[in-house]
Design a protein around this nucleic acid. Sequence first.
DNA 1: GAGATGACGGGCT
DNA 2: AAGCCCGCCATCT
Length: 114
Amino acid sequence: MAPAADHETFYDRVYDLIRRVPEGSVVTYGQVAALLGAPAASRAVGYALRALPSSSDVPWWRVINARGAISLKGRGPGADIQRDLLEREGVSFDADGVVNLRAFRWWPSVEDGR
DNA sequence: GAGATGACGGGCT
DNA sequence: AAGCCCGCCATCT
């Protein structure tokens, strides 16, 4: 536990980025990794979210996989919770439980925070 | 220091 | 078209 890095860990960077995702929008694991400069670290991104405490202010539910589906599927009730949270924000799912990334995917604007 | 883990992704069969 | 397999990366034990 306690990653204890004097420097912000990769996790922190992941959280920081996700905190910028506005309501009603989503991003993919691979996308987050790419934005952090590690396009192949999508798994690490998921790992970061897994370790995320529920008390966090990070909107983890806005992160889904490249297919536009919820990866928590098959992993407990988490998937239903995530889906519910997204639908409340206006993100819609199709019959297969997939989000239309073309319509809901968010990309940070140059002026946004970077 | 080495091995195992995991909310992923992409390629190949 | 669907499913299986391998690779990637950062962290944890």
